[in-house]
Write a protein that binds this DNA or RNA. Structure first.
Lengths: 225, 225
DNA sequence: ATGTTTGCTTAATAGCCCTAAGGAAACCTA
DNA sequence: TAGGTTTCCTTAGGGCTATTAAGCAAACAT
């Protein structure tokens, strides 16, 4: 477990590669993140990168995981459910290229991206679990749900260790998909035909979320419990 | 307005190009849609495509508009709001590559994609307008909305000719962003960690939508008015 | 019948991903 | 400390890509 000099140098180069790749992404767009361009940026030849990644795909995957983990850490610093949601949007607005990079690409099962996605989702879920423990919010009656949906919810409720009953799991996932849609649309400018400023749109969305989860809506800055 | 022989040949080649590009997209993924590959598929040289498109970007844009218009036409054949939503998902599930191609890319103002997006949105909006005319659904009190949001809603309500009051416009856009999020997540497999079959999830979403819009939920196949 | 426009070709530049072959430096070990 | 091994990096090269340029032939217009 000793870190030799070589290990440290390697780590430093790896960091430089990540930095250069991210810089290329944010300044010149996703298409500019090429093996050769990253190498040039770092000051080594293109093929040298193959000592760090098996190819372009693996670099892309590593970047995706790094971005998603950064976002996940960011969310963890937020206090309360609404501020967690705000932290999500704030990060997306501050890092639109990275957000798009993460969330507008197909997720393939088995890849590292998949595990990072679960770590991310857990942060959102933990917030809802806390709300649920304190004061359960209204959930649909499990008997009213279609059997096909019910089974999946029961199954996933077990997968996450029974922290939430199946119907509450459904609420979490519904909340997440709503947030996902709204923030993706903002980042991709899909709603520009109607909205020029998405900030109040997002806050109104949060108001709806608060009402659905039975918590008080409080604007940003204050510290809701 | 006479179509000369040359015009007809040109149109035929253009169609072949579109078909070939789409075939490459669906069978080999977005990265396979290259000028050269499309040319090969059609049976002409790569540079010959420059007589039809100014470059790769314009081909991409043309494809996006064609896909979006096809989806829009598909939605127009649906009967009633819920079936319109179902038609959206059905098309997305049947054509995941095309749906992703359309909706996971940034929209740039001024491009043809922008106008196609407005035609698309109008189909959804028309459905909601019909519902509103028959029986207005509950909307938030305009005075309760943040001024920044209110102004944008008022403005867009005017842009679309006052068919819907500002608060109802907000409901339309909220519905659209919810649908967008859910269908994108399905196409991109973003919810695979929890759901293996999204069909009942989508139906449950429709149930919520129906309740919010004050219409009766009826499962697929039947003909809600 | 003649001139122009159009559609296509090949050639060429410059970039991409990736593999192969080989040199130099750092590391480990005897 | 010397020798062998591992690691990092290089250049060269094949086969892609987008795009521009130059030129030929056929269709069109007059």
């Amino acid at each position: 477990m000793t870190t030799s000099r070589r290990d440290r140098v390697r780590k430093a180069t790896l960091d430089e590669i990540h930095d250069a790749a991210r810089r290329l992404l944010t300044t010149k767009g996703p298409a500019a993140v090429t093996i050769n361009a990253v190498g040039r940026e770092v000051g080594i030849s293109g093929p040298a990168l193959y000592h760090y990644f098996s190819g372009h795909d693996e670099l892309v995957n590593a970047m995706t995981v790094a971005f998603l983990d950064e976002l996940t850490d960011e969310l963890r610093t937020a206090d309360g459910f609404l501020n967690t949601c705000r932290a999500l949007r704030d990060w997306a607005v501050a890092h639109p290229a990275e957000f798009g990079w993460i969330f507008t690409r197909p997720v393939v099962a088995g890849a590292a991206r998949y595990a990072a996605g679960m770590r991310f989702e857990q942060v959102i879920r933990d917030q809802v679990v806390a709300l649920w423990r304190e004061k359960p919010f209204p959930v649909p009656d499990l008997a009213d749900l279609a059997p096909g949906l019910r089974e999946q919810l029961v199954s996933y409720s077990e997968v996450i260790g029974g922290e939430l009953p199946p119907a509450a799991v459904h609420v979490v996932l519904t909340c997440w998909s709503g947030l996902y849609g709204l923030v993706c649309m903002e980042v991709l400018h899909q709603l520009d035909f109607a909205y020029s400023d998405m900030a109040p749109v997002f806050e109104e969305h949060l108001r709806g979320l608060a009402s659905r989860l039975g918590i008080a809506y409080s604007s940003a800055g204050s510290t809701p419990r």
